[in-house]
């Protein structure tokens, strides 16, 4: 409202850009802006020519592979036939959506997706926070670095390998069932139990990414003013009170940022992880929206309806991010965008 005359403020300020900008930007901007206006566009283009050429391949990539495909969603409203193409395929209005909503397998995939995301939110989301707090509380640098380098490792392992490893450790012929046999417990194979599937998926995600997820929280913890802790300790605040009144408020913005971004992907669970295990537990428990699109669209050629699923996912995801961002602003939090609403 206040800053109407200025250039539109950037949504999604590039992370990390702020310190140099704040340090070098102020004096340079005061002197630089009037001068910059006077440089004619042609001269500026000649000055920046090499740089623009350097940026061009990357820009083309983003336009071609991220923006151009969006037009492909027109087939959600077509009876798309690959040999006819976009132009010749018949328009069918909302028929694809109607067919989709009448398909019980779609609703089952939607339910599975939501169940898996929910379990993941409850189990996985707090894991990196707890681990980061634990790592942060370790006073020895050496030990902390050592543990960090161990827990970051699984992030770099592909899903195929991870599922194979889980199969080897938890699966029918694996380590854990063998141990249970040895202890005289009944046999149980978690890898093929449809009821346990969301829990298994969350467990695998925790194993892979809980360590990696600590990076962002450790950065937030490091930026908390140590003086606050000392002052609170002098005032007689105990360990838990300091955790509650200093540490948690210090990392709340990061938690909210990640929650908002998670909301945007509420209808997406890792395609790769799920498609690898869908057959082991059966489609009733293992089909999610992305695998539904894959099997119905690319495998069976139901292009229109699967594109409709993709469109619904994209619209719901974007709406949730924008809505949650708005709510975060109402509560005085920064959210994902800064300044866009202010």
């Amino acid at each position: 409202m206040v800053k109407q005359s200025g250039p539109p403020r950037a949504a999604l300020r590039p992370p990390g850009a702020s310190p140099p900008e704040a340090a070098a930007g102020a004096p340079e901007r005061a002197a630089g802006r009037p001068a910059r206006r006077r440089v004619p566009l042609r001269r500026r283009l000649r000055r920046d020519g090499v740089l623009l050429l350097l940026a061009l391949p990357g820009l083309l990539y983003f336009l071609v592979f991220h923006y151009l495909p969006l037009f492909g969603y027109v087939i959600a409203f077509q009876d798309f036939q690959p040999f006819l193409g976009f132009a010749e395929s018949a328009w069918v209005g909302l028929d694809n959506f109607a067919a989709l909503f009448g398909d019980p397998r779609f609703w089952s995939a939607l339910g599975n997706t939501l169940r898996i995301t929910l379990v993941q939110l409850v189990l996985f989301f707090p894991a990196p926070i707890g681990l980061a707090l634990l790592l942060h509380s370790i006073l020895s640098d050496k030990i902390r670095r050592f543990v960090q380098s161990i827990v970051y490792l699984p992030h770099f392992i592909g899903w195929v390998i991870i599922v194979s490893i889980f199969q080897q450790v938890l699966g029918g012929a694996g380590v854990v069932p063998h141990l249970m046999d040895a202890l005289g417990l009944p046999r149980y194979d978690v890898m093929t139990d449809p009821d346990a599937f969301p829990w298994l998926v969350a467990l695998q995600v925790i194993w892979k990414d809980a360590g990696w997820g600590t990076i962002i929280f450790l950065a937030a913890l490091l930026s908390i003013d140590q003086g606050l802790y000392e002052a609170a300790a002098i005032d007689g605040a105990g360990r838990w009170r300091r955790l509650w009144h200093i540490t948690l408020p210090g990392i709340t913005p990061v938690i909210i940022l990640l929650l908002i971004l998670n909301l945007g992907s509420i209808l997406s669970v890792g395609f790769e992880q799920i498609v690898l295990q869908r057959d082991a537990v059966g489609p009733e428990a293992g089909e999610v929206l992305d695998t539904y699109v894959y099997f119905h669209g690319i495998r069976s050629g139901e292009w229109g309806t699967s594109a409709a699923v993709g469109l619904i996912k994209a619209v719901v995801g974007t709406a949730l991010v924008l809505g949650a961002n708005k709510v975060a602003h109402l509560f005085g939090q920064e959210g994902v965008y800064r300044g866009a609403d202010k």
């Binding site: 250039p7 623009l52 820009l59 495909p69 945007g264 669209g297 993709g310 996912k313």
Partner: peptide
């Protein structure tokens, strides 16, 4: 950089959405 801000936004915005399986396949 002339137009740098706009180019950056084009790139950053792709972190918030992905085109999805079917449009990518067709492309």
């Amino acid at each position: 950089l002339t137009g740098g801000r706009a180019i950056l936004m084009v790139a950053l915005f792709t972190m918030l959405f992905s085109p999805g399986i079917i449009p990518n396949y067709l492309l």
